[in-house]
Nucleic acid binder design. Sequence first.
DNA 1: CGGGTTTGACCAGCGC
DNA 2: GCGCTGGTCAAACCCG
Length: 144
Amino acid sequence: MEKHQVMLHTASTSTALSSHFKDVEKQVSEISSQNQSDKEAKHHRYAFQTRSAVDVLDDGYQWRKYGKKIVKNNTFPRSYYKCAHRECNVKKQIQRHSSDEEIVVTTYEGTHTHPVDKSVETFDQILGNLLIGNLFNNAPPTLE
DNA sequence: CGGGTTTGACCAGCGC
DNA sequence: GCGCTGGTCAAACCCG
């Protein structure tokens, strides 16, 4: 259950938001379990989908883009981000839906070890755009 | 001038 | 064993 700490640490500044995040990654965890192997479970992976016009969502951390790739299942390219801190080997992947370009899938990998001095207002904005449960439970054909 | 981003090439893992 | 897809690195360019 250490993966929960990722999101909780991210929103440690606000207890209310922590609860919301907990609910969010709970949905994600379910997907990993039902989808498959513990192989993915070993790798701390948290994916959530947001409805935004921009690819990169400001979650309070600084990210450095280190790669871009076109995936066959998606018409849009996938972007690879890394945490700006050298000590922090946290990775983040961002990709859009093939059909719905307004849907952005953000996948986090790893755990942050440094504090966030960003405003919590950012999280509120992100949470406002979150629609994880619906998309994952409905499993749109475009995603697979 | 420096940091960050961009784009292409290279490499590794998996499937056939 | 070869080919394909996906992931990472690295050098060059652009912006602040």
